[in-house]
């Protein structure tokens, strides 16, 4: 694993989730279309996209969902577990322009012996506009598992 395991006790409300920057390209959109089976042409056929009143090909919402999933599985680490992930698409993103996944911890609590952390997450474009909003809940290991 690239990162040291994060424990429940290490997390505080208000804490920032380490951001994840992505540089989507048209090649990535084609790879994602192939891997996911979503072959809607607005994601790889520029003429088709323009005919549909789009500025050009745009990112699959689902790819942005996957980026935010990565933000959270990195945060949870191999001993954590992503329990919930929600995304709402608010704006389009185009390949060739970087996007950054960000988030912060909004709540931490224990229930039924599980240590849970709720986070507010989002994806920003290069102008700092939030084009995807979301939330996530991760289960983290405790340094005192018998508590």
């Amino acid at each position: 694993m690239a990162h040291k395991q994060r424990y429940f006790e290490d997390v505080e409300v208000g804490q920032e989730i380490p951001p994840l920057e992505k540089h989507p390209t048209t090649q990535q959109l084609v790879k994602y279309a192939g891997a996911s089976g979503d072959f809607y042409q607005i994601h790889y056929d520029k003429d088709f996209a323009i005919k549909n009143n789009l500025p050009g090909v745009i990112l699959h919402g689902a790819l942005k969902n996957a980026f935010l999933g990565q933000l959270m599985t990195d945060f949870a680490g191999e001993r954590g577990w992503l329990r919930k992930l929600s995304v709402q698409y608010r704006g389009m993103d185009q390949p060739g322009s970087p996007v950054v996944c960000k988030g912060k911890v909004v709540k931490k609590y224990s229930e039924d012996g599980r240590h849970l952390v709720d986070c507010e997450i989002w994806l920003e474009n290069a102008k700092g506009e939030k084009t995807t909003l979301g939330s996530a809940t991760v289960m983290l290991p405790s340094r005192h598992p018998e508590d």
């Binding site: 694993m1 690239a2 990535q28 790879k31 891997a35 996957a66 990565q70 191999e78």
Partner: peptide, 23 residues
């Protein structure tokens, strides 16, 4: 292929040998 397409290098999704050492 899915992990590669989304650009996620997490060994859990890519590397059997490393993933075997996890829970």
């Amino acid at each position: 292929r899915f992990a590669e397409a989304i650009g996620d290098p997490n060994p859990l999704f890519n590397n059997e040998a490393e993933a075997r050492r996890t829970r």
